[in-house]
Amino acid sequence: MGLASRKGKRRQHSAVLPIIDSSQCTYCKKCMKWCPADAIIQDNGKAYIVADKCIGCGECIATCRFDAVKYNFNADEGYLQKSMAEHACGAVIDKPGKCFYFNVLINMTQNCDCLVRSRTRN
């Protein structure tokens, strides 16, 4: 995912949209102000993300001080994995014989590593 553009990363995460935990939402409206798609509305005194309008940018996650906004990792993870593979292929397809690949797995998390809060220590 690291070689993808910002737009590409947004596209990769588009199937894994954020959700709001209403038990942690204080309805401070900060996420609503920062949402570029106006996808967050008020529902029973709490913020609510309209999935059809959400573009998956993660601004709401970055601005929530109360950890009420989280990615819904139970969504279609197959799409995310396929999209990441397609972007990786696009980054190296015009560089035959010029790439070296190695994998190292350290400090694995159950959630996406783009969320600093989700990192755990082993």
Rank of each mutant, 00 (worst) to 15 (best):
A47R: 00
I55Y: 10
C28A: 02
C28G: 04
D113V: 02
V116W: 13
I40D: 00
K33W: 08
F100A: 03
H87D: 15
Q12I: 11
G56V: 05
T26Q: 08
V69P: 01
V69N: 03
C31E: 01
C31D: 03
S22N: 07
V104D: 08
Y48S: 10
I93T: 13
C60T: 10
M1Y: 03
V16E: 13
K29V: 06
D113S: 12
D113M: 05
T26L: 02
G58L: 09
V16Y: 05
A68Q: 05
A51K: 15
D67Y: 04
R10L: 12
A51C: 02
D67R: 07
A47K: 00
V69G: 05
P36A: 13
A37R: 06
F100T: 11
K53S: 14
C25S: 06
A75V: 08
N107R: 09
R121F: 09
C114Y: 09
G58V: 10
V92A: 12
S23N: 14
K9V: 03
V92I: 15
G2R: 02
C54T: 09
K7M: 10
A91Q: 08
N74V: 08
I49H: 00
S22R: 10
K95E: 13
S23H: 02
N107Q: 11
S83A: 15
D38P: 01
L80G: 07
C28W: 06
G58I: 09
